[in-house]
Amino acid sequence: MAVQFLRRLRSGGPGTSSARHPGGRAVTAALLVPAIAFLALFFFYPILITFGTSITPANGTGVTLEEYLTILSSPKDWGVIALTLGLAVGTTVISVLLAVPLALILRRRIRGHRALRLLVLAPLMILALVSALGLLILWDRNGWLNLLFSRLLPFSDGPLQIDYTIPGLLIFYTWLYSPFTILTTLSAVEGIDPNVEEAARVSGAAPWRVFRSVTLPLAWPGIRAGSVLTFLLAFGAFSVPLIAGGNHRPLPVLIYTEAAVFQNFERGSALAMVMAVVALAAIALYTRFSSKPVRGSAG
């Protein structure tokens, strides 16, 4: 798990004293230069270009905050930001609700749990566009699911419209991005010492109370680590809403449309900067307020 790697890294591996290594600081610096130079050139510089474009007026000279003021004063743009955040939060919540029971089941190592684990990985390995295409075909008005519903619910009026709606996008996003939450939740739940839960049970705690006061708090770091990834990916989703969003255009689609279709690079760049700021702020808030699963919990 990435977070564990990172933690191990920060604690400093064995033998990190510079005295043991020939060359000292100069060699260390030389080793670090390639990656830093690369990211400066192909990540930070492009962001700088984007920022520069966003504050340059259309005629090319001077500095202006016009694009930002337009965005901030436009209810439509606020709506887009709210839609993007709402889809990301919704996907994260559904993913956690899916991940916790699934992890509790897989933890018991039921028959076929290996195949199920492989299945959880599948959406990660496959191009989002391909899965979106499959989901579009599946949830189509003439798709299998609507055929199924029409047989099961003969009294319903007409096929369900799922494709190109917000619930449809949530179904698609969850399919694509929940594996991150599921995998970290699973590894956290499997890392819990069963004796701790046993102790709570023997002490007379009801199953729900064992779950809420023992299992959930112990699994929470894992749930949190994965759900951050789910949130980030859902927030930045581009290809899926591009082909499956219909009239719902989250920020990445709007940015791309403004820049590539309308050639309005200034507005596209300003939206991109707003998006970066919202993404970083959302992560900061999430890590700040999710340090405990339930605040004020006794035990």
Partner: peptide, 23 residues
């Protein structure tokens, strides 16, 4: 340093895609 190196995975690619294209 590690945070800086991981930053491209933290912000959505579309945020630097326009600048990258221009570059």
């Amino acid at each position: 340093l590690m945070t800086l190196i991981l930053l491209p995975k933290t912000v959505p690619p579309i945020t630097f895609a326009l600048g990258l294209s221009r570059e």
